[in-house]
Amino acid sequence: MNKSNPVNVLVGDDHQVIFQGIETMLNNHSIINDLDYAASIDEISSRLSENKYDLLLLDLNINGINSLDHVEAFRGIIEDLKIIIFSSYNNKKLIDKASDLNTNGYLLKNTDQDSFQSAIEKVINGGTVFDQELKITDSPSDDIEQYANLEELSKREKELAALIIAGNNEQEIADLLFISKNTVRTHKKNIFRKLNVSGTFGLIKYIQANNEVF
């Protein structure tokens, strides 16, 4: 498969906001043909049975179920399916298990947009990807990260953050708020800095971890 052939991607995650973030990351990317969403293990299996997908972006924990236990079953439906584990868990044992199951990669959910797009392209073209910042450690994977308070954001920054979470790209946000794209980028940098997060997925993770709403 080469870069000239757009691919069909299925996202398996029990949080729709993650799918919205992925949509934002891959918005208008030439390598993507269709991008679909499944919120449970059963729904993933059903969609794989009904459609020909090239890549599955798979959350590690879906509704309390370890999705690694279902990798072989998913490959039984589509033999040449490429699978990237996409998780907030940064733990050597989990990474090793994903590798032992011959998945095509393991990415953290705070991966920035450029790295995320590059990883997708690499896997589609036959490579494997493992996040460069993964810890080679056996420490517990569910450490609670410390985040700044959402109240540190200005009213405008909260408005913009909500639009990011909703899946709007920079131009759409600029149009909705009647500001320039450069101003949008400046606000985004300030939001990420104040909340101590890395990119769109870091923002999504912050919202999930702190049960925040805008």
Rank of each mutant, 00 (worst) to 15 (best):
Y37F: 15
N51S: 13
D54W: 10
I22C: 03
G76C: 01
D80N: 14
D59H: 07
L48M: 09
T24M: 15
L81F: 11
A98F: 02
I120A: 00
I95D: 07
S118M: 12
I84T: 15
I22W: 02
D100Q: 11
D69M: 14
Y53C: 04
S67H: 01
I18K: 13
V129P: 01
I62G: 15
N61S: 13
H70M: 06
K122C: 06
G64S: 07
E23Y: 01
N27I: 00
F130H: 02
L108N: 07
Y53V: 05
K92F: 08
K82V: 00
D96N: 13
T103A: 10
S99A: 13
N28K: 09
L35R: 05
G64L: 07
I83K: 05
H15I: 11
S88A: 11
Y53G: 05
H15F: 13
I31E: 00
I120G: 00
N91V: 06
S30T: 00
F74A: 05
A73R: 09
K122E: 02
N63I: 01
H70C: 05
L60C: 00
A73D: 10
I136V: 10
Y89C: 12
D36T: 04
L58W: 14
L26T: 06
K93R: 14
H29E: 15
N63L: 04
K135R: 09
N66R: 12
N63K: 06
I136D: 12
I62T: 12
F130K: 03
I95W: 09
G126D: 05
E133S: 10
R47A: 14
I44H: 03
I18A: 12
S30W: 01
S67F: 03
N110R: 02
K135C: 04
I62R: 12
